[in-house]
């Protein structure tokens, strides 16, 4: 994995030297509320509140206007299909300006548990429908690693480190393809096993295949509650 991150770092700096490379800085708080149901079913509600504080081009003046970008509300139903596997499907509504974007979501997750850490693989697809736009299809893969900062398991009142790396392939029309890469180093705190708070960086880079790189730096705050 080390060479990959070095490569990513090189890419980020090489893109910075070119014109038309933009950046966004903002916050991305989310709430995740889950309810376990019978027969290994679970229902999850997720809401995200995206706010932008700075935007601009590398090497040029920055604009600092605050902008409330959008609110997401998603409902996902999941079913545990094995000890480590879960399939899920759901629907998302994105409230952006006066528009409401709709998205359908399908995902398959594998979680491997090791002595001192967990490794999760998430394969997902989603289809986004916005007003007056053709449907956008995304194929996503995310790997997540979480490890306790004390002891061998993440227990109540303890901290943990969670690092995610995601690749999103976006297809829109026939000739419109984009790859987005996300790296999310987060630190989490366990109030109880069903109540966790995480915060850290949500770094996203995309459009580099089209030579107009966009980099986004979000301060992520994620609250996971299970009832």
């Amino acid at each position: 994995m080390k060479p990959f991150y070095l490569l990513l770092l090189c890419c980020v700096f090489s893109f910075n030297t070119k014109a038309q490379n933009t950046y966004n800085i903002g916050t991305l708080p989310t709430i995740n509320l889950s309810k376990s149901l019978e027969n290994n079913w679970k229902i999850n509600f997720k809401s995200e509140f995206r706010q932008l504080f700075k935007t601009g081009q590398f090497g040029n003046n920055q604009t600092t206007n605050y902008d409330y970008v959008h609110t997401d509300a998603a409902i996902v139903a999941s079913k545990k299909t094995g000890l480590n596997n879960t399939i899920a499907g759901g629907f998302l509504l994105r409230f952006r300006d006066q528009d409401i974007v709709k998205r359908t979501i399908q995902q398959f997750t594998i979680i491997n548990r090791f002595n001192a850490f967990r490794l999760g693989h998430r394969f997902s697809t989603d289809q986004t429908f916005a007003s007056n736009e053709t449907m956008a299809l995304r194929l996503r893969y995310r790997v997540t690693f979480d490890i306790p900062l004390n002891g061998q398991s993440v227990d109540k009142n303890e901290w943990y480190l969670k690092i995610s790396n995601e690749y999103l392939n976006r297809f829109k029309n026939k000739e419109n393809y984009d790859l987005e890469i996300r790296v999310l180093p987060n630190v989490g705190y366990v109030f109880t096993d069903n109540n966790k708070l995480e915060f850290g960086l949500d770094y996203r880079i995309n459009d580099f295949v089209n030579q107009s790189t966009r980099q986004r730096f979000w301060l992520a705050i994620n609250w996971y509650i299970s009832i």
Partner: peptide, 10 residues
């Protein structure tokens, strides 16, 4: 009993 996996799954 497994620990909650919501923060890896969603």
């Amino acid at each position: 009993i497994f620990r909650n996996t919501d923060n890896i799954q969603f």
